[in-house]
């Protein structure tokens, strides 16, 4: 019994390790996609798009490993919650890869145009969002609820940036209709980043579940009764890439 338990522990550890690798891979995709956008780098953007196949493969292969462990080990308690968490989290990470691809495509589309203003807020937002993703995965491996709450706090910050950027771009489009073809894709990029932040919060919430056994919505903005600060536009239809 002791030996089989040890083998199972190793498999669980390996599962988390592979999830972490997938997270790092996708985080690099996200970083490159935003860099491609700001530096008009089509090559880099194409690299991101190609990388998505690898991320998808990682997703499938980790899910298969989870299913195998469920079938063969019939895990209970903490082990069950860990495997359930990994299965959910890979979907969030895979989705973040998709958003990186969308940003990469936008970078290619806008590669030949001079931006009407230097991109400042989007890289800043991207930096924050990447931190959230990294910390959410760190929280998972370290089983650290402190980090979970830090991720949730950062999400409020990202939400505020998104609302501000939205207002600003709307204002610019009203004043200078000729930039609409640039401003709309950039607005979508901001939206993608905001969605990446939400997926990172999902991951953080799963970590909390894994540790406490309680499934809760931690981020205020993820609750149905949430009212954004100030006179912000209410729920907008979500951009559905792909």
């Amino acid at each position: 019994m002791r030996r089989t338990r040890q083998a199972f522990d190793e498999q669980l550890e390996q599962l988390e390790q592979r999830l972490l690798e997938m997270g790092e891979f996708v985080e690099a995709m996200l970083e490159k996609s935003v860099r491609a956008l700001t530096s008009h780098d089509v090559e880099l953007a194409r690299e991101v798009i190609a990388a998505d196949d690898v991320a998808d493969e990682m997703d499938i292969s980790i899910e298969q490993q989870c299913m195998r462990l469920l079938a063969l080990q019939q895990p209970m308690s903490r082990d069950l919650r860990t495997i359930g968490t990994v299965m959910k989290v890979i979907s969030d990470v895979e989705r973040i890869g998709d958003y990186s691809v969308d940003i990469g495509r936008t970078a290619i589309r806008l590669a030949d145009t001079e931006y009407f203003k230097p991109l400042v807020d989007i890289p800043k937002m991207a930096e924050l969002v990447r931190t959230m993703l990294r910390q959410a995965l760190e929280a998972l491996v370290a089983r650290d609820l402190e980090i979970v709450f830090r991720v949730v706090e950062l999400d409020d910050k990202v939400d505020r940036m998104w609302y501000r950027l939205q207002e600003e771009l709307e204002h610019i489009m009203e004043q200078r209709p000729e930039v609409v073809r640039q401003a709309v894709p950039l607005l979508l990029v901001a939206r993608y980043l905001e969605r990446v932040a939400d997926h990172s919060v999902n991951i953080a919430e799963r970590v909390a579940y894994m540790e406490t056994g309680r499934l809760e919505t931690l981020a205020a903005s993820h609750r149905a009764d949430y009212q954004p600060e100030g006179n912000q536009p209410a729920e907008r239809p979500e951009a559905k890439p792909e």
């Binding site: 895990p75 209970m76 308690s77 903490r78 056994g213 309680r214």
Partner: peptide, 18 residues
């Protein structure tokens, strides 16, 4: 609850085969 999220560490150890 006992099998998904037991409250006592010893229960957790037992149901996980430890």
């Amino acid at each position: 609850q006992i099998f998904e999220s037991p409250k006592d560490r010893r229960t957790d150890d037992y149901v996980r085969g430890r």
